[in-house]
Simulated assay, not measured.
Amino acid sequence: MRKQTIQLTFCLLMLSTFSIAQSQLTLGVKGGANFTGFHTGSSTFSSEFGINLGGIAEYSLSDRFSIQAELLFNQKAGTFTIKDNSNFVLGSVVSELGYIDIPILAKIYISDKFSFEVGPQIGFNISEKTEFNGSEVESELKTLDTALVGGFGYQFEQGLFIQARYGYGLSEVFENERYKNSVISLSLGYKFN
């Protein structure tokens, strides 16, 4: 009898722990637009357009703080000019890039619906198209991309949310150039309860 009571207590404890853990984890999907370009550390030019699409997992640690991980497909792009030694413009380069990005964000709820989020992001390049003066060329693109991302979110009723975020690239996109990704993202999403 004592053994059955201990087993029943253990099972109830495990079930309650599992239900508490599940109530702290929220899954969702999101998609939106990217306004993207390259920055050099001193200047940014965001003239290109792309999309973002993916899933989120938010783990609540308290009423006001959570950790949010995302798995996203992000289209990024940028334009820059190439000059010779006498500063004469030879032409422009346009690169369209596709990344699988994984941001890990600390999410602070300023109110019940409004949040601030910040954290690191690592990305893996999965597609690339580079043109010089309208003709496709080979580029020496780095596979790994790192960034610091931050932004704001607003949670509506019924699971809908919106996000505005900026991604400041920390690593250079190309082997022999100083350009880094710069992305402003606007997204609409839905959290499953």
Rank of each mutant, 00 (worst) to 15 (best):
Val149Phe: 03
Asp145His: 04
Gly169Ala: 09
Asn85His: 11
Glu175Ile: 13
Ala106Asp: 05
Ala57Ser: 13
Ile184Ala: 08
Tyr99Ile: 01
Lys107Tyr: 09
Val183Gln: 02
Ile110Val: 15
Phe161His: 13
Leu170Cys: 06
Lys83Asp: 11
Ile108Ala: 14
Asp63Ser: 14
Asn87Leu: 14
Phe65Leu: 15
Ala106Tyr: 10
Gly98Trp: 00
Asn74Cys: 00
Ile122Gln: 02
Ser62Leu: 07
Leu90Arg: 11
Glu96Asn: 13
Gly150Tyr: 10
Ser135Cys: 06
Leu160Met: 15
Lys129Cys: 00
Ala57Trp: 10
Gly169Pro: 06
Asn181Arg: 05
Ala164Ile: 12
Gln121Val: 08
Thr143Leu: 14
Phe49Pro: 01
Ala69Cys: 14
Val118His: 02
Glu131His: 07
Gly159Asn: 10
Lys107Val: 13
Gln155Cys: 06
Lys83Ile: 11
Ser135Ile: 12
Val93Glu: 06
Ile126His: 05
Thr81Met: 11
Pro103His: 08
Leu105Cys: 08
Leu53Ala: 15
Gly78Gln: 03
Leu105Arg: 05
Asn87Cys: 12
Leu148His: 00
Ile56Cys: 09
Pro120Ile: 08
Asn176Asp: 15
Phe174Ser: 05
Ser92Thr: 14
Leu72Val: 00
Leu90Phe: 11
Phe73Ala: 07
Lys83Ser: 14
Ile56Pro: 00
Asp84Glu: 11
Lys129Ala: 01
Gly91His: 09
Gly159Met: 14
Phe73Thr: 05
Phe116Gly: 10
Ala77Asp: 00
Ile82Pro: 05
Arg178Lys: 15
Thr130Met: 04
Glu172Met: 05
Glu140Pro: 05
Val93Lys: 05
Ala147Leu: 04
Phe116Pro: 07
Leu105Pro: 01
Phe80Leu: 10
Ile67His: 08
Gly119Asn: 09
Leu61Gln: 09
Ala147Pro: 01
Thr130Ala: 07
Gly153Tyr: 02
Ile67Gln: 09
Asn133Leu: 10
Ser86Thr: 15
Ser60Leu: 13
Glu117Asp: 10
Gln121Lys: 13
Gln75Ala: 11
Ile184Met: 07
Phe65Trp: 12
Tyr179Met: 12
Gly54Arg: 03
Leu170Tyr: 08
Thr146Asn: 04
Gly119Ala: 09
Val183Ser: 04
Glu175Leu: 10
Ile108Phe: 15
Ile100Arg: 01
Val118Ala: 13
Ser182Leu: 04
Gly150Ser: 12
Glu140Arg: 12
Gly98Arg: 02
Val137Trp: 08
Glu117Pro: 01
Lys107His: 08
Ser182Trp: 01
Ile126Gly: 03
Ser127Gln: 06
Ser60Pro: 02
Phe73Arg: 01
Ser47Val: 04
Phe49Asn: 12
Glu140Ile: 02
Ile104Arg: 04
Ile104Ala: 13
